[in-house]
Simulated scan of single mutants.
Amino acid sequence: MPLNLNREPDLPPQLKWKCAHEPKLLGWTIRARNYNTFVANCMFAFMAVATTGGAYTVYLHPIPGAEHITQLAISVGFYMLITLTTSSMTHQRMNSAYRFTKSGIEYCEWKEFPQWALTFLKWMTGITAIIFIFMATIDITFLIGALVGPGGMGLMYLTMANSKNHRDLHTQYHHYAYKWKEITQLAIATNREIVDLKYSVTQKGDNYKTNWNLNIYCKSNQKENVAAFIKIHLSPDVPFIRAKINVPLSTDY
Protein backbone atom coordinates (compact mmCIF):
# COMPACT_ATOMS: atom_id res chain seq x y z
CA MET A 1 0.00 0.00 0.00
CA PRO A 2 1.64 3.29 -1.08
CA LEU A 3 2.30 5.98 1.49
CA ASN A 4 0.19 9.13 1.22
CA LEU A 5 1.90 11.68 3.43
CA ASN A 6 -0.19 14.56 2.04
CA ARG A 7 -3.59 13.05 2.89
CA GLU A 8 -5.60 15.08 5.38
CA PRO A 9 -5.65 13.34 8.78
CA ASP A 10 -8.89 11.85 10.07
CA LEU A 11 -10.07 12.65 13.59
CA PRO A 12 -8.97 9.72 15.78
CA PRO A 13 -11.55 7.82 17.90
CA GLN A 14 -9.90 9.16 21.09
CA LEU A 15 -11.25 12.64 20.29
CA LYS A 16 -14.91 13.67 20.03
CA TRP A 17 -16.53 16.97 19.12
CA LYS A 18 -18.34 18.56 22.05
CA CYS A 19 -20.86 20.31 19.79
CA ALA A 20 -21.31 17.49 17.28
CA HIS A 21 -25.09 18.01 17.54
CA GLU A 22 -24.72 21.49 16.01
CA PRO A 23 -24.29 22.04 12.27
CA LYS A 24 -20.70 22.70 11.19
CA LEU A 25 -20.33 26.21 9.79
CA LEU A 26 -16.68 25.81 8.86
CA GLY A 27 -14.05 23.15 9.46
CA TRP A 28 -10.92 21.47 8.16
CA THR A 29 -8.01 19.26 9.16
CA ILE A 30 -4.34 19.97 8.58
CA ARG A 31 -0.82 18.80 9.42
CA ALA A 32 1.35 21.65 10.62
CA ARG A 33 4.65 22.30 12.35
CA ASN A 34 3.38 23.83 15.60
CA TYR A 35 6.67 25.32 16.73
CA ASN A 36 9.21 27.91 15.67
CA THR A 37 10.09 26.60 12.21
CA PHE A 38 12.92 29.11 11.69
CA VAL A 39 14.81 27.76 14.70
CA ALA A 40 14.09 24.15 13.69
CA ASN A 41 15.25 24.75 10.11
CA CYS A 42 18.44 26.40 11.36
CA MET A 43 19.08 23.41 13.63
CA PHE A 44 18.56 21.00 10.73
CA ALA A 45 20.83 23.04 8.43
CA PHE A 46 23.55 23.13 11.07
CA MET A 47 23.29 19.38 11.69
CA ALA A 48 23.27 18.68 7.93
CA VAL A 49 26.52 20.60 7.52
CA ALA A 50 28.06 18.92 10.58
CA THR A 51 26.94 15.50 9.35
CA THR A 52 28.44 16.17 5.92
CA GLY A 53 31.71 17.04 7.62
CA GLY A 54 31.51 13.91 9.74
CA ALA A 55 30.79 11.70 6.73
CA TYR A 56 33.70 13.26 4.85
CA THR A 57 35.97 12.66 7.84
CA VAL A 58 34.91 9.01 7.88
CA TYR A 59 35.69 8.83 4.17
CA LEU A 60 39.16 10.35 4.67
CA HIS A 61 40.07 7.80 7.35
CA PRO A 62 39.51 4.45 5.67
CA ILE A 63 39.31 1.18 7.52
CA PRO A 64 42.55 -0.76 7.00
CA GLY A 65 42.18 -2.98 3.96
CA ALA A 66 38.86 -1.45 2.86
CA GLU A 67 38.29 -0.69 -0.81
CA HIS A 68 37.48 2.84 -1.99
CA ILE A 69 33.85 1.97 -2.73
CA THR A 70 33.48 0.32 0.68
CA GLN A 71 34.62 3.44 2.48
CA LEU A 72 32.29 5.55 0.33
CA ALA A 73 29.34 3.28 1.18
CA ILE A 74 30.13 3.54 4.91
CA SER A 75 30.25 7.34 4.68
CA VAL A 76 26.92 7.49 2.82
CA GLY A 77 25.32 5.13 5.35
CA PHE A 78 26.57 7.31 8.22
CA TYR A 79 25.19 10.44 6.55
CA MET A 80 21.76 8.89 5.87
CA LEU A 81 21.42 7.55 9.41
CA ILE A 82 22.24 10.86 11.13
CA THR A 83 20.20 12.95 8.67
CA LEU A 84 17.10 10.78 9.07
CA THR A 85 17.41 10.95 12.84
CA THR A 86 17.81 14.74 12.78
CA SER A 87 14.89 15.34 10.41
CA SER A 88 12.61 13.19 12.56
CA MET A 89 13.26 15.63 15.42
CA THR A 90 13.24 18.98 13.57
CA HIS A 91 10.43 18.40 11.05
CA GLN A 92 7.70 16.76 13.10
CA ARG A 93 4.12 17.76 12.28
CA MET A 94 1.10 17.93 14.53
CA ASN A 95 -2.38 16.97 13.29
CA SER A 96 -5.02 19.62 13.88
CA ALA A 97 -8.77 19.70 13.26
CA TYR A 98 -11.06 22.73 13.55
CA ARG A 99 -14.84 22.89 13.74
CA PHE A 100 -16.74 26.17 13.96
CA THR A 101 -20.39 26.17 15.03
CA LYS A 102 -22.93 28.70 16.26
CA SER A 103 -21.66 28.14 19.82
CA GLY A 104 -17.99 28.76 19.11
CA ILE A 105 -14.71 27.13 18.10
CA GLU A 106 -13.61 23.56 18.74
CA TYR A 107 -10.05 22.48 18.18
CA CYS A 108 -8.54 18.99 18.30
CA GLU A 109 -4.81 18.43 18.25
CA TRP A 110 -3.10 15.06 18.16
CA LYS A 111 0.14 13.36 17.31
CA GLU A 112 0.23 9.63 16.72
CA PHE A 113 3.22 7.37 16.47
CA PRO A 114 4.38 7.50 12.81
CA GLN A 115 3.85 3.98 11.52
CA TRP A 116 5.06 5.09 8.08
CA ALA A 117 8.49 5.77 9.61
CA LEU A 118 8.70 2.16 10.78
CA THR A 119 7.72 0.91 7.33
CA PHE A 120 10.31 3.19 5.68
CA LEU A 121 13.08 2.14 8.06
CA LYS A 122 12.23 -1.55 7.72
CA TRP A 123 12.33 -1.48 3.92
CA MET A 124 15.41 0.75 3.81
CA THR A 125 17.23 -1.53 6.24
CA GLY A 126 16.32 -4.64 4.26
CA ILE A 127 17.22 -3.19 0.87
CA THR A 128 20.58 -1.77 1.97
CA ALA A 129 21.42 -4.97 3.87
CA ILE A 130 20.80 -7.05 0.71
CA ILE A 131 22.99 -4.68 -1.32
CA PHE A 132 25.84 -4.85 1.20
CA ILE A 133 25.61 -8.65 1.53
CA PHE A 134 25.68 -9.02 -2.25
CA MET A 135 28.69 -6.71 -2.48
CA ALA A 136 30.37 -8.62 0.36
CA THR A 137 30.59 -11.61 -2.00
CA ILE A 138 32.94 -9.43 -4.05
CA ASP A 139 34.76 -7.78 -1.16
CA ILE A 140 34.38 -9.07 2.43
CA THR A 141 35.04 -5.58 3.83
CA PHE A 142 31.50 -4.59 2.77
CA LEU A 143 30.31 -6.48 5.87
CA ILE A 144 31.78 -3.62 7.91
CA GLY A 145 29.67 -1.16 5.94
CA ALA A 146 26.62 -3.33 6.60
CA LEU A 147 27.18 -2.97 10.36
CA VAL A 148 27.46 0.83 10.15
CA GLY A 149 24.66 1.58 7.64
CA PRO A 150 21.90 -1.07 7.66
CA GLY A 151 22.91 -2.13 11.17
CA GLY A 152 22.38 1.38 12.52
CA MET A 153 19.03 1.76 10.76
CA GLY A 154 17.95 -1.65 12.03
CA LEU A 155 18.81 -0.64 15.58
CA MET A 156 16.78 2.56 15.15
CA TYR A 157 13.84 0.52 13.82
CA LEU A 158 13.92 -1.85 16.82
CA THR A 159 14.09 1.10 19.22
CA MET A 160 11.10 2.83 17.65
CA ALA A 161 9.05 -0.36 17.36
CA ASN A 162 9.64 -1.77 20.84
CA SER A 163 10.20 1.20 23.15
CA LYS A 164 6.97 2.22 24.91
CA ASN A 165 8.55 5.44 26.15
CA HIS A 166 9.56 6.35 22.60
CA ARG A 167 6.05 5.66 21.30
CA ASP A 168 4.40 7.61 24.14
CA LEU A 169 6.68 10.56 23.40
CA HIS A 170 5.19 10.73 19.89
CA THR A 171 1.56 10.24 20.93
CA GLN A 172 -0.67 13.07 22.17
CA TYR A 173 -4.41 13.82 22.14
CA HIS A 174 -5.92 17.21 23.08
CA HIS A 175 -9.36 18.78 22.71
CA TYR A 176 -10.30 22.43 23.31
CA ALA A 177 -13.59 24.34 23.01
CA TYR A 178 -14.16 28.09 23.24
CA LYS A 179 -17.30 30.20 23.03
CA TRP A 180 -17.29 33.19 20.72
CA LYS A 181 -17.73 35.55 23.67
CA GLU A 182 -14.47 34.23 25.21
CA ILE A 183 -12.35 35.51 22.31
CA THR A 184 -10.67 38.80 23.22
CA GLN A 185 -8.48 39.44 20.16
CA LEU A 186 -8.18 38.29 16.56
CA ALA A 187 -4.91 38.47 14.64
CA ILE A 188 -3.72 37.47 11.18
CA ALA A 189 -0.10 36.31 11.11
CA THR A 190 2.02 38.11 8.56
CA ASN A 191 4.78 35.48 8.57
CA ARG A 192 2.89 32.15 8.61
CA GLU A 193 -0.43 30.63 7.55
CA ILE A 194 -1.92 31.21 11.00
CA VAL A 195 -4.90 33.03 12.47
CA ASP A 196 -4.20 33.70 16.14
CA LEU A 197 -6.82 34.24 18.83
CA LYS A 198 -6.50 35.53 22.36
CA TYR A 199 -9.07 34.15 24.76
CA SER A 200 -10.07 34.61 28.38
CA VAL A 201 -11.81 31.71 30.15
CA THR A 202 -12.46 30.40 33.64
CA GLN A 203 -11.17 26.82 33.75
CA LYS A 204 -13.16 24.16 35.57
CA GLY A 205 -12.33 24.26 39.27
CA ASP A 206 -10.69 27.71 39.06
CA ASN A 207 -12.04 31.02 40.39
CA TYR A 208 -9.90 33.19 38.11
CA LYS A 209 -9.58 33.93 34.40
CA THR A 210 -6.99 32.21 32.22
CA ASN A 211 -5.68 34.34 29.36
CA TRP A 212 -3.80 32.66 26.55
CA ASN A 213 -3.49 32.21 22.78
CA LEU A 214 -4.90 29.78 20.25
CA ASN A 215 -3.07 29.29 16.95
CA ILE A 216 -5.35 28.27 14.11
CA TYR A 217 -3.24 26.70 11.36
CA CYS A 218 -4.63 27.32 7.90
CA LYS A 219 -4.07 25.93 4.46
CA SER A 220 -2.32 28.04 1.86
CA ASN A 221 -4.10 31.37 1.21
CA GLN A 222 -6.92 30.41 3.61
CA LYS A 223 -6.19 32.62 6.62
CA GLU A 224 -7.85 35.78 5.26
CA ASN A 225 -11.16 33.98 4.72
CA VAL A 226 -10.92 32.22 8.09
CA ALA A 227 -10.25 35.50 9.89
CA ALA A 228 -13.16 37.17 8.10
CA PHE A 229 -15.46 34.32 9.11
CA ILE A 230 -14.39 34.52 12.75
CA LYS A 231 -14.72 38.31 12.85
CA ILE A 232 -18.44 38.29 12.06
CA HIS A 233 -19.05 36.08 15.12
CA LEU A 234 -17.14 38.31 17.55
CA SER A 235 -18.20 41.38 19.44
CA PRO A 236 -17.51 44.61 17.49
CA ASP A 237 -15.15 45.82 20.23
CA VAL A 238 -12.78 42.81 19.85
CA PRO A 239 -9.48 44.06 18.34
CA PHE A 240 -8.57 42.77 14.88
CA ILE A 241 -4.89 43.17 13.97
CA ARG A 242 -2.12 41.90 11.75
CA ALA A 243 1.15 40.89 13.40
CA LYS A 244 4.23 38.74 13.08
CA ILE A 245 3.67 35.65 15.19
CA ASN A 246 6.31 33.41 16.67
CA VAL A 247 5.34 29.86 17.62
CA PRO A 248 5.19 29.09 20.45
CA LEU A 249 4.36 32.62 21.43
CA SER A 250 3.62 34.55 24.59
CA THR A 251 0.43 36.40 25.44
CA ASP A 252 1.94 39.63 24.06
CA TYR A 253 2.51 40.62 20.44
Rank of each mutant, 00 (worst) to 15 (best):
I133W: 07
K122E: 05
F132G: 01
F132K: 04
W116E: 09
L121S: 04
I130A: 14
L118Q: 09
A136Q: 01
W116C: 04
T128N: 08
P114A: 01
E112Q: 13
Q115R: 14
A136F: 05
L118T: 07
F120P: 00
L118N: 08
I138K: 10
I138L: 11
L118I: 09
Q115M: 13
K122C: 13
T119Y: 05
M124L: 15
F113R: 12
A136E: 06
E109K: 14
Q115W: 09
Q115F: 08
E112L: 10
M135F: 12
I130E: 02
T128D: 04
K111F: 01
I127F: 08
Q115I: 11
I131V: 15
I133D: 05
I127A: 11
T119N: 13
A136C: 03
M124Q: 09
Q115V: 12
I130K: 03
I127S: 05
W116Q: 10
W123V: 14
I131W: 00
I127C: 07
P114Y: 04
F113H: 09
T119D: 09
I138P: 00
W123L: 12
W116L: 07
I133G: 00
I138R: 08
T119W: 10
G126A: 08
A129E: 09
A129V: 06
T128W: 04
F132M: 15
W116G: 05
A129Q: 06
E109L: 13
W116N: 14
W116H: 15
P114D: 00
I127H: 02
I138M: 11
E112A: 08
Q115G: 11
M124W: 14
T137E: 01
Q115N: 13
A136W: 03
A117M: 15
E109I: 13
T125S: 12
E109Y: 04
W116M: 06
I138D: 06
I130Q: 06
F134A: 15
T128H: 01
P114G: 02
T125M: 11
F134E: 01
K122R: 12
L121V: 04
P114I: 08
G126N: 07
I138N: 06
G126W: 02
I131H: 00
I133F: 13
W110C: 06
E109V: 14
K111R: 14
I131T: 14
A129L: 15
M135I: 09
L121N: 07
A136G: 07
M124C: 12
A117I: 15
F120D: 02
I127K: 05
L118G: 06
F113D: 05
L118D: 04
T125P: 05
T125Y: 07
E109N: 10
W123D: 01
W116A: 12
K122P: 01
T128E: 04
W110R: 11
A129C: 13
K122H: 05
W123K: 11
Q115Y: 03
L121K: 12
A117C: 04
L118K: 06
I133E: 00
K111C: 05
F134I: 15
K111H: 02
I130S: 08
T119R: 15
F113Y: 14
I130H: 01
